[in-house]
């Protein structure tokens, strides 16, 4: 189907365009286009985790029980003080090593672990991670890192919800839990969305780091496809074309940012329906 289409277009537009179309739709290139799914899964999964961690962090920061409050403040401060790359590498590695450590004690026996100096003490303790496993861990670590950012945004937004609304709700006889979920959280979104949109942009850009976790994502494919291509029988297919491929990625991420901006504008309009803040109709 695809070959036929390209042959047709080649007939209309000339050999050169047909040949380059055929080149950019060969198997490797199709694999490159397909690897966009990892970026999108990590972005959406990471954002979901980030909102969950953000709600948790905001709840901790508002807790009247001091140790919880300290924990919340510690979480948001430490994540902000350290680069995201460090955390994105650290959490998967720490989790992997932790699981392998437990596996070693369960499968190899404590004597074996004590006797051997190298790692792993026996083959059963080696945990080979698939791309899917790494993707899940990438989502969680993106969630932890940007959850701290989201926690701050959500915390500020919850403070911005007017007290009168909450007092009126409790005067009507709503329980504290109902007041929290049906009024505070419901109204919070309108205040939180501009900040959350910013966090989403940061998270989207951080998804380019997936290749550091050995996921064959768009960045890694671009490097592979662009590298100078030499076959002994054919000769040099193309010289180092990496800059072309990275330029495409550069434009791809700008496009994603544009789409996200539009999306959040629409969401903001929806969230602030009927609320007396700027930006509502």
């Amino acid at each position: 189907m695809l070959e036929f289409l390209i042959a047709q277009i080649g007939q209309w537009l000339g050999e050169d365009i047909g040949a380059s179309l055929a080149y950019i739709s060969n198997g490797k290139h199709l694999a490159w286009y397909a690897s966009v799914r990892y970026t999108l899964i990590a972005a959406v999964g990471g954002a979901t985790c980030a909102v969950l961690f953000g709600l948790l962090g905001a709840a901790l920061k508002q807790s009247s029980f001091l140790p919880f409050k300290w924990l919340g403040d510690f979480y948001t401060t430490i994540v902000r003080g350290v680069p995201d790359v460090l955390f994105i590498l650290f959490f998967p590695l720490a989790f992997e090593k932790g699981v392998e450590y437990i596996l070693a004690y369960v499968k190899c026996g404590a004597e074996n672990v004590a006797a051997t100096t190298g790692w792993p003490p026996c083959d059963a303790a080696q945990w080979y991670l698939s791309t899917g496993d790494y993707l899940v861990m990438a989502c969680v670590s993106l969630g932890i890192v940007y959850g701290a950012f989201a926690a701050n945004v959500i915390h500020g937004a919850m403070m911005a919800v007017s007290r009168g609304q909450l007092e009126a709700a409790s005067a009507y006889g709503f329980t504290p839990r109902q007041v929290f979920w049906r009024f505070k959280v419901r109204q919070m979104w309108a205040y939180a969305l501009p900040g959350l949109s910013n966090v989403w942009m940061l998270l989207l850009k951080a998804t380019s780091l997936l290749s550091l976790l050995q996921i064959a994502d768009i960045v890694q494919w671009a490097g592979r496809l662009g590298a100078a291509n030499y076959f002994p029988r054919v000769g040099l297919v193309h010289p180092d074309w990496r800059w072309k491929y990275y330029l495409v990625l550069f434009l791809f991420f700008i496009l994603m940012t544009m789409i996200s901006e539009r999306f959040f504008e629409a969401l903001q309009r929806r969230a602030s329906r009927g609320m007396a803040i700027t930006g509502s109709n």
Partner: peptide, 10 residues
């Protein structure tokens, strides 16, 4: 609007 990681590679 684009990641620094890509900008470095580019």
């Amino acid at each position: 609007g684009s990641p620094l990681f890509i900008q470095f590679f580019m």
